[in-house]
């Protein structure tokens, strides 16, 4: 899974720069990619579980579903930002910490933009995952089966 997520973020979405290798090595070695990956899968699943199986509101409309989708995406965005920020700036990898502390290395300036990039990627992915999860989960929901359609 680590390789899969790493390939996705680095190759598919192009979040990689060989000049700052230590960042990406740290994310790979210290489980940062795993945590980021589970966020865009796990959080939407949890959100839609709540929506379809615990939310006992019988007057749900498409708008409710849409708001829930967006709320899920926003939650993933914020959480991803926090997790990515922690994974980079509080990693426990001394080499990365030294590089980030060296003002002339350029690591800090580059690294500061990464959490938002991962957050936006994850938010977008969560929309897709959430939509597909929704189509599956609605089959077994008794109250919200009619959403999104």
């Amino acid at each position: 899974m680590n390789e899969l997520f790493a390939a996705m973020y680095e190759s598919l979405f192009g979040v990689y720069n060989a000049n700052y290798l230590e960042i990406f090595t740290t994310l790979f070695d210290f489980g940062g990619y795993l945590r980021l990956g589970f966020l865009f899968i796990g959080l939407p699943l949890l959100f839609w579980l709540l929506f379809y199986y615990l939310w006992k509101y019988p007057y749900g409309r498409f708008l409710h579903w849409l708001v829930w989708l967006l709320a899920s995406a926003v939650t993933v965005l914020v959480t991803t930002w926090l997790v990515a920020d922690h994974a980079i700036f509080d990693s426990g990898n001394q080499a990365l910490a030294d590089a980030l502390g060296d003002a002339e290395s350029g690591y800090k300036a580059y690294a500061e933009g990464l959490p938002m990039r991962y957050a936006l990627i994850n938010a977008g992915l969560s929309l897709a995952v959430g939509f597909m999860a929704s189509l599956v989960m609605k089959q077994f929901s008794r109250i919200q089966m009619h959403l999104p359609f």
Partner: peptide, 16 residues
């Protein structure tokens, strides 16, 4: 309130 909104009044639910 429920007609056309609640699941039990819907005859056009898709993908089920």
């Amino acid at each position: 309130r429920a007609l056309g909104v609640s699941r039990w009044t819907r005859s056009n639910i898709r993908l089920v």
